[in-house]
Simulated assay, not measured.
Amino acid sequence: MARILVAEDDADIRDFLAVVLTGAGHEVTPVADGAEVLTRLAFPPPSMVLIDLHMPGLSGLDALKQIRTVPAWGKVPVVFLTASGATDDMVRARTLGAQGYLVKPIRSADLLAKIRVVLEDRSLIWLDDITQSRSA
């Protein structure tokens, strides 16, 4: 079981993610924007952050930039879940220190598989993410 902080501005998607993740035995803290991610990272720190790229206010990329400036949060894996399959966005996320990038819509099984890989081994093969987004 992992503690997963889920940041998604669309309430329906946020609820769907919470149902899938809690059904798989994870503890989920849902938030609606990047700013809320920063307030929820402190206590207790999550096992990982699943975050949308484009959100009002503080974007997922901007939140990741701030996460990586705090030493205590530096090792928290961050995976993006977004509608943007643009290679440039994937490269920016990886450059900023994200461990994964999933393009919506995503099947529950694929989401759970990616989370398992990230939690077990934080080094991901990003080519898989890029290839899958282009073939979707």
Rank of each mutant, 00 (worst) to 15 (best):
S59A: 04
F43K: 05
G34Q: 02
E36A: 14
V37M: 07
A35D: 15
H54Y: 12
A42P: 03
A35N: 12
D33K: 01
A35G: 15
P45D: 02
P56S: 10
P45Y: 12
V37L: 10
L58S: 05
E36Y: 00
I51H: 00
R40Q: 11
G60S: 08
A35T: 14
A32T: 05
E36M: 11
P46K: 05
H54S: 14
P45R: 12
L50K: 04
A32C: 02
L38P: 03
T39M: 14
L38Q: 01
G34R: 01
A32I: 01
F43L: 12
G60P: 05
G57D: 06
F43E: 15
M48G: 13
S59V: 02
G57P: 06
A32G: 11
M48S: 14
A42D: 14
V37R: 07
A42Q: 12
S47W: 14
F43M: 09
F43R: 10
P44T: 11
D33H: 08
A42S: 15
P56E: 06
D33E: 08
D52I: 08
P46V: 13
V37F: 12
A42H: 14
A32H: 02
L38G: 05
G34C: 04
V49Q: 03
D33Q: 05
E36Q: 12
P46W: 07
R40I: 01
R40E: 09
P44K: 09
M55P: 04
M48H: 11
H54F: 14
F43I: 07
P45S: 10
S47A: 15
T39R: 14
L58M: 15
G34N: 03
A32W: 00
A42W: 05
M55T: 02
L50D: 01
A32F: 00
I51P: 00
I51L: 10
H54T: 13
A35R: 10
R40M: 08
S59P: 06
A35W: 04
E36S: 10
M55L: 07
R40K: 09
M55F: 08
L58R: 07
R40T: 01
D52H: 12
M48P: 12
D33Y: 00
L53M: 10
L38K: 00
L53A: 06
L53F: 09
V37G: 03
H54Q: 15
L41A: 07
S47I: 13
M48N: 09
A35F: 07
D52K: 09
S47P: 12
M55I: 04
V49Y: 00
T39V: 15
S59T: 10
D52R: 11
P45Q: 11
A32P: 01
L41Y: 14
I51C: 13
I51W: 05
L58E: 08
S47D: 15
E36D: 04
S47F: 13
V49I: 15
P45H: 08
P45N: 02
G34A: 04
L50M: 07
